[in-house]
């Protein structure tokens, strides 16, 4: 099947139905391998002790909080520039999932910070910029809810999403640009990772597992959003034919 065919929502639904069981299985296997490596093979950190095990969920969630937003920004371009039929569906589906990953990143970071830094929270650049990201996700979800017409809502959300994308490089480079309690990048950096391979591979596997989890949830949420729009169309058709005789098929144009 050519990739362009997936632009068609009905074919996309069929594709999702076939792909999701496989993705679910891959996600579970990757989490099992990654967490086994994290808990049974990777050593404790020489400074942080066993609390380093929080890294194996905190870091993947942090990466995904930004990756999901980048996905939404790309979908925004698809909405505004190409008016792709699935772009705003993707944008709307991703926002709650991104918010959940960002919340888990903040919560697990706080639970890691208390024993290591002696505080649950500091208003430094990295933590504050991630909190701003979380608030932006909530704002975008709220904006979707305030505009009933999904086509009009998509344009407003797409513009706001693109404006908010300026926060992504701020999050990434905040640890280099400002003094912060948060450690600098240890994996994706010039000169290669500074983290030992015994900890690096479980981290990369759990990150891959979290990415598969996101893709699975995103596909399912997109499927739901397509159904929601079909439901809205059918209700509009039903409302526009108030005198239809019960039992008589009512057929209307798709919106």
């Amino acid at each position: 099947m050519p990739l362009i065919d997936l632009a068609n929502p009905t074919r996309f639904l069929g594709f999702v139905g076939r792909l999701v069981p496989w993705l679910t299985a891959v996600t579970i296997v990757l989490f099992a391998v990654g967490l086994y490596g994290a808990f049974f093979l990777a050593p404790d950190d020489y400074q942080q002790g066993a609390t380093v095990k929080i890294m194996f969920i905190h870091v993947p969630c942090a990466w995904l909080s930004m990756f999901v937003y980048a996905t939404m920004a790309a979908s925004s371009l698809g909405t505004l520039v190409w008016r792709h039929p699935l772009a705003d569906v993707s944008m709307k589906a991703a926002a709650p999932i991104g918010a959940v990953f960002t919340f888990v990143c903040l919560a697990t970071g706080s639970l890691w910070g208390k024993p290591m830094w002696g505080t649950w929270w500091v208003w430094d650049a990295r933590l504050t910029s991630v909190l701003v990201l979380f608030i932006m996700y909530l704002g975008l979800i709220a904006l979707w809810q305030t505009i009933e017409d999904p086509i009009r809502g998509a344009k407003a959300v797409a513009v706001l999403t693109l404006v908010g994308a300026i926060n992504l490089p701020i999050i990434k480079f905040s640890v280099d640009w400002w003094n912060t309690l948060h450690q600098p990048a240890a994996v994706f950096r010039l000169g290669g990772p500074t983290i030992d391979i015994s900890m690096l591979w479980p981290l990369l596997v759990t990150a891959l597992a979290a990415t598969c989890l996101f893709v699975t949830l995103q596909l399912l949420a997109m499927k739901n959003e397509i159904k929601r729009r079909r439901l809205r169309t059918l209700r509009l058709i039903e409302a526009s034919r108030p005198h239809a005789v019960a039992g008589t098929p009512v057929v209307g144009a798709a919106s």
């Binding site: 929502p9 009905t10 074919r11 059918l234 098929p249 009512v250 798709a254």
Partner: peptide, 15 residues
């Protein structure tokens, strides 16, 4: 009996 136009004919209707 409420259906989108063409939803029972071809599977590639736009929602």
């Amino acid at each position: 009996g409420i259906r989108r136009r063409g939803s029972d004919k071809k599977p590639d209707a736009v929602p």
